[in-house]
Simulated assay, not measured.
Amino acid sequence: MDVKTGFFYLFALVLLFAAFRVVTARNPVHAVLYLMLAFSQASAVWLMLNAEFLAIVLVLVYLGAVMVLFLFVVMMLDVHIDTVRRGFWKNFPLAATLGGVVVFQMAAVLMSGFSLTEAPASAPGALPVDNGKALGILLYTEYLMPIQIAAAILLVAMIAAIALTLRTRKDSKAIDASVQVKVRAADRLQVVKMAATQLAPAPVAETEANPAEAKK
């Protein structure tokens, strides 16, 4: 057994263990962490199969965005495990049926085998081109217009999402300039008429201020 085969069995073993722990973990945070471990091992297996683009996309999209989002959502929701487990046996028949269907389909695929074809041989003396570079050349030459349309749609969707979620802050003291220009002095300043001078109040005698001492 060479080194490449040894690494494949190592990644596959860790992948199976992580996938098993995703299902059997009691803590949802631990389940998400095991799922991230499973995705990382699957990415390593794809790298060994010379599928660099799929491996990088799996790491960037799922590990870098989706799974981190799932982890934060699970931690912020504070799911009560005891409440969730109350309906376990009620939903167990349906879950077992779906699991059996998935196992049957995978077994049928594995038993029938895969029709492998040899990769096209490159021209003699030509430099080897990886699939990531070949996919990039194909996307930005033959499919340039669909890529640009998809990028424009995603940009519009991102701007719309930011505009829909944008709300004015209540604690902000910023003032609109147009409101300041249209303001009138009568709306901001009120003149109150008061007498120029006022008589000082008469001094109060100590006896009147404290009647108890006056009686003594």
Rank of each mutant, 00 (worst) to 15 (best):
M48A: 02
N50T: 02
K216Q: 10
A134P: 14
V84F: 09
K215T: 09
A177E: 15
A152K: 05
T97L: 14
T141N: 14
V66Y: 05
K133T: 14
W89G: 01
K133I: 12
F17T: 14
I56H: 02
F72M: 11
P124L: 07
A134V: 11
M48N: 00
A161M: 14
A19W: 08
L77V: 13
K90N: 07
L63I: 15
V23G: 06
A121N: 12
T97M: 10
N91L: 10
Y34L: 00
L138G: 11
L144E: 03
F104C: 13
L60K: 07
M1N: 12
A209S: 07
L16F: 15
A214Q: 06
Q41Y: 00
R86Y: 05
I149V: 07
L69E: 02
I81E: 09
D130Q: 03
V156A: 15
M194D: 15
R167S: 09
A150F: 04
M111K: 12
A51H: 04
A25R: 11
A18G: 10
V103R: 04
L127G: 05
T141V: 13
A12P: 07
V79A: 08
F114V: 13
S43K: 00
N210T: 02
I149T: 02
A186W: 03
A195H: 10
W46E: 04
